[in-house]
């Protein structure tokens, strides 16, 4: 393809609700820069929703708006039905938040003391899960917060987020700075936590492959707007990679098909084409064009996001 394919129209409607997290036409401007440009995001109760997008797409800003750490310029954001702007403290009490930055606020304080401090702010703090997580995440309560490595800070942040058993988790790049072992452990705890506590999770990341298996909803964000959001099964059904044999004298570069988002030449007279659309329709479209589909397979969330984000914006 000479130019990138156009972005297909992806579904954004997740139904009527009620939703655990919702953003309605949220706009956030910093002077002349628009970080969020009319974002409509919905996370159903009990969902594990991954928000994928490149750096600067607005993922962190959205989470901060939901936490009432930023005030939206327009639109509404709500957590469990509570308006984030009106009732910030109450919203934050329902949320376990891991921020983007690796900072624990008090560099001189010992980790154990920091845990005590945060426990005073959360009446639902669970000392048992705190002790267990601290042991399994290998957190030393005697060390000072300022001396910790990036990875250890992340682990403490995760502990602080889970310890009060919140019904909502907002995780901003939760695996950032963690080595393989720590990352694996974190996924293990999250899986366990999802069983033990009825939770809705919104995980924002630009690296999906690490948490793919925990996820059941996907939202793709670019330049402050959602390209699409849908349940994982819908993504697997709708976005597939088709391996097809093409006839002689066929120029794939000139071909345009509804919903095509990527095209790669295969060996000889074959192509690999990623298309958004109903499988039956796509296979029929291929047949009409003279190509014979040999196989279609779903993509991983990571591949799907990468492919969709490589498309051109519809002007």
């Amino acid at each position: 393809m000479k130019t990138s394919p156009m972005a297909p129209t992806l579904p954004v409607n997740l139904g009527e609700g009620p939703f655990a997290l919702s953003a309605d036409n949220v706009v956030k401007r910093y002077g002349s820069v628009t970080a969020l440009d009319g974002l409509d995001l919905k996370v159903p109760f009990g969902a594990v929703y991954v928000l994928v997008g490149p750096n600067g797409a607005g993922k962190t800003t959205l989470l901060r708006v939901l936490m009432n750490l930023e005030r939206s310029s327009d639109g509404q954001a709500a957590v469990l039905g509570i308006d984030a702007r009106q009732d910030g403290p109450r919203v934050r009490a329902q949320i376990g938040y891991v921020p983007e930055e690796h900072s624990l606020g008090y560099p001189w304080m010992k980790v154990g003391r920091l845990l005590d401090l945060c426990s005073a702010y959360h009446p639902t703090w669970d000392p048992e899960i705190t002790a267990r997580l601290a042991a399994e995440l290998e957190i030393n309560p005697a060390r000072r917060c300022g001396q910790l490595s990036k990875g250890t800070v992340r682990r403490v942040q995760l502990l602080l987020a889970l310890a009060h058993r919140p019904p909502v988790l907002l995780l901003d790049e939760p695996t950032d700075g963690l080595d393989h072992v720590a990352r694996d452990r974190m996924l293990e705890f999250l899986a366990e936590y999802l069983v033990d506590t009825p939770t809705t999770a919104l995980i924002s990341t630009h690296r999906v492959y690490e948490i793919e298996r925990l996820v059941d909803h996907v939202g793709v964000i670019r330049e402050g707007r959602l390209l699409g959001q849908m349940p994982l099964e819908e993504l697997r059904r709708g976005l597939r990679r088709y391996s097809a044999d093409i006839p002689e004298g066929w120029e794939p570069e000139e071909w345009e098909m509804e919903g095509m988002v990527a095209l790669r030449p295969g060996l000889g007279r074959s192509i690999e084409c990623t298309v958004w659309g109903e499988e039956e329709r796509v296979v029929a479209d291929f047949a009409v064009a003279g190509a014979n589909v040999r196989e279609s397979a779903p993509l991983s969330v990571d591949e799907a996001a990468t492919t969709l984000l490589s498309t051109r914006e519809v002007s």
Binding site: G46, V48, D184, L187, E188, L190, A191, E192, L194, V195, D196, R213, L214, V215, D216
Partner: peptide, 14 residues
């Protein structure tokens, strides 16, 4: 469910 989800690092609903 807890054991398997935890071991495989997958969503318990799966």
């Amino acid at each position: 469910v807890r054991e398997l989800a935890s071991n495989l690092r997958i969503n318990p609903r799966t």
